[in-house]
Design a protein around this nucleic acid. Structure first.
Lengths: 354, 354
DNA sequence: GCGCACGCGGTAAACGTTTACAGTAAACGA
DNA sequence: TCGTTTACTGTAAACGTTTACCGCGTGCGC
């Protein structure tokens, strides 16, 4: 791997100055003869521009960072899938950070913006601390936050509306005749956890249903722990007839546990997930899920950032993506009155048995 | 956003030369007094090293690129999940490219290595063309290929062994008493497609089963098209009793279609997927799947690359990750003799019905 | 008291570009 | 013929670091 050619090498070979080489390579007006010589030399040498040197001079890296809370979570992956092509189309590379939702790591990423190895950042923190806000205010490059930040924070911001999302799900379950609706939530000190908890309570109140603490269980946002929380809930409220789960992974855990407990879904218990990930469609019974528009949020965030990178100053903008309830088999009908027949799945002819 | 401080700013404020500032910041031996002054100035100014300038000088970017064929495919995501922390731990950032398995895009990525914006590359091409090999030979930075390359290609290489993987699955199905085993494959001009097709044929031969063209269908590697291919297969061979699917997405498509056709899984048809993605565990019935060690391959690739980045020259290495069959409900027993009772799921008491 | 080693720190070059500025030659008008 | 415009090209500075090299002052041995 001998050192690659630089514009100096080319200049020498073509018998012109490095300035001319640069001009030719950038398409600035130049005499035909010079263009020809430079191009020929560049071709023969297999010249490729050095991105680092260009960045140093131009103060632009054409890189954007995406700091996702969790590389394993399909909701973030959905964002990633949308962010990637938008950036690519605009000529930006994507630098991926995984913070595992650890605050220190997120602060680290914000801090490292000062190193100027990227032109901007998209970040999706699970929790937003005072430290986050401080760093955001001092950030040396444009940042877009996916998730909610306190009012008045001067930063571009893309939000889901999980409050309305929970409402959609609860109303749906209510309309199906469910009255003992449980909530399996993630930690209350996360932004989504808190929002979903509050929205659940509110929705019940508005529907005139009592709020029962035994119907609310808290775990983390993963399958195993979600299942554990559901088991606990079943233990306390055996006749629960619907479960609102704070995300799809929790809902999968719920399906596991319900199945093990001999409960039919949706015959005995209807289950709704959240995020509408690929897993929802893959599970059996297929999971009704509230889409919080992960894909749309990713896209919006990327576009906000590009706009900021290209446009320069403007007031920070807040984009809110509306939720959408996707109804599948896991909530496909009213609860069974009797035991064991005419479940919704059967009505649709989709069950696995003969 | 006033221009951030540079070592010049610090030097001025501390009353020393930029060389001293640099030495202090890099921990080179310096008088205590100088260290103190520089540190104080740096702190007050909120100085952060400029990564671009450092890279230009040191010819190291501390970035590594991962070019994945498809951001949507869980198998590649599993690699990503392993690659990320390995690189992070070694102080490298991850630049993510999605090539959508388009050859031109992959060549582009290889070409752009010349821009020196990364120190190395991990790439997982679906097809390896002559153009790939040419670019690999001329690459200006170390590359690790995930997937098979022709013998003698001088490049670090991490392989799955899908031949043995298919063999594991077919032997398993045979042991369960299945004799009409279909294959739902992806395109034959892809490396995995070709390997799986050949392995299937070989396995049948070794087991003394006839090779029947009607039992082999080709689609792409996605759910919808996989389902279509299965429908076609069912049409030609209604009494097929097992399906080997070239990946999990195809297998999910198979489950969809089998369910719609009123076939029980595994009672009538056993189904095996490949890649052992999250989806396999999430589906119902849970999918038996051949793990090709995506996670291990990602990890191995990252480690090979780091070794190369740190160690310098050595002979190219080939790492082969052995496959592993993960048995779940979709192959949990022998075919039912009679119609409709005693399926494996029921035996395990896990079905959705009462 | 003188020469020398040694520990520090400053000057300047280098990494590979872009670009402001100045310089040159040709073309043109008076 | 001469000045001026025009069209191009070269010189050099700059982006923010790292580092080779040199010079200076101190302390030591003789």
């Amino acid at each position: 791997m001998a050192d690659g050619p630089t514009i100096n090498t080319i200049a020498e070979r073509a018998g012109v100055s490095i300035a001319s080489v640069s001009r030719v390579l950038n398409g600035l007006p130049t005499r035909q003869e010079t263009v020809r010589k430079v191009m020929a030399a560049a071709d023969e040498l297999g010249y490729v521009r050095n991105a680092v040197a260009r960045s140093l001079k131009s103060r632009r890296t054409h890189q954007v960072a995406f700091a996702m809370a969790d590389v394993g979570n399909p909701a973030y992956l959905a964002m990633l899938r949308e962010i990637q092509p938008v950036l690519k189309a605009a000529g930006y590379r994507l630098v991926l950070h995984s913070t595992d939702a650890v605050v220190a790591d997120e602060i680290d990423v914000l801090h490292s913006l000062g190193e100027r190895y990227v032109d901007g950042l998209i970040m999706s923190p699970l929790r937003v601390t005072g430290q986050h806000l401080e760093m955001l205010a001092a950030a040396r490059a444009p940042v877009v936050i996916i998730g909610s930040v306190p009012e008045g924070t001067r930063v571009d911001n893309v939000r889901a509306d999980s409050r309305t999302g929970v409402r959609l799900a609860i109303d749906h379950l209510y309309a199906l005749g469910r009255r003992r609706i449980g909530l399996v939530n993630g930690p209350l000190d996360t932004v989504p956890g808190a929002a979903r908890g509050a929205a659940y309570r509110e929705a019940l109140t508005d529907l005139g249903l009592p709020y029962d603490e035994d119907l609310v269980r808290i775990g983390d946002f993963y399958r195993a722990e979600g299942g554990r929380a559901v088991a606990e809930l079943l233990d306390r409220v055996p006749d629960v007839d619907a479960l609102m789960c704070a995300n799809d992974l929790i809902a999968l855990g719920a399906l596991d546990v319900l199945r093990a407990a001999g409960k039919r879904v949706p015959g005995d218990v209807a289950v709704v997930g959240m995020d509408d990930t690929d897993l929802a469609a893959a599970s059996w019974p297929a999971l009704s899920s509230v889409s919080l528009g992960s894909a749309e949020r990713g896209k919006a965030a990327a576009e906000l950032l590009l706009d900021r990178l290209q446009g320069g100053d403007r007031e920070p903008r807040v984009v809110t993506v509306p939720p959408r309830l996707v109804v599948r088999a896991s909530t496909a009908g009213p609860p069974d009155a009797a035991a064991g027949h005419g479940s919704a799945e059967r009505a649709e002819g989709r069950e696995g048995g003969a």
